[in-house]
Nucleic acid binder design. Structure first.
Lengths: 98, 98
DNA sequence: TATAAAGTTCTCATATATGATAACTTTAGT
DNA sequence: ACTAAAGTTATCATATATGAGAACTTTATA
């Protein structure tokens, strides 16, 4: 708990730096999408292999897509198909910064 | 006015057909994104050329990106950068299909 | 702790998006 | 109708995502 508080304080301080903040938000966003993809799949009780089959591709490709560390920026259509395979549509919004 | 009503009735009838409906929604979505991109740019009072400069690219590429008819499915990062250049962040949501 | 299932990583081939330039068309203002 | 600005289209080169297969690591469970 003490650790958590300390870190939290440090984080807030660091985020006052615009460059750090920007970098952080960029990561947050990437993390968000990948995270959403993964939880969407798990919510539907699918393994990577099962989803891969639905999409006529390989489990290794699903893994790559879901990998938070990969530098790949997927095509919109790829995300769309992933979502469709589980019964979802994509919605894209533009949010003003600050 | 008469024309509009007739068309509207036809449209609703046609949308009861699942295949037609799916095709329609697909188009709607594509249209939506491109439309959002265009209005975002215009809201910020930018020409394609001006935006291109901000993004260190050419106006022809902006035109291609905004072109509703093109079969290109852009990278997520491309849309992101377009938005960022005008002070917006991307938000992506998964909407259950019915 | 052995085993199977699930997920990851690497690599190469292929498909597709993006960058750049030029010529063309449309639109707006006079 | 003329002109300039804005937008479009075509094309080729380059960058990057995706497909596929194999070997590897992690996780869960008996």
């Amino acid at each position: 708990m003490m650790e958590r508080k300390k870190f939290s304080q440090f984080k807030n301080k660091a985020l006052e730096n615009p460059e750090v903040r920007e970098e952080y938000e960029k990561l947050q966003q990437k993390y968000e999408l990948k995270t959403k993809l993964i939880s969407l799949r798990k919510m539907n009780g699918l393994t990577q292999e099962e989803l891969a089959k639905k999409l006529h591709t390989q489990k290794s490709n699903i893994s790559r897509l879901e990998n938070v560390n990969s530098k790949i920026s997927p095509r919109l259509s790829t995300i769309e198909e992933y979502a469709k395979a589980m019964g979802y549509n994509l919605e894209i919004n533009f949010i003003p910064q600050n």
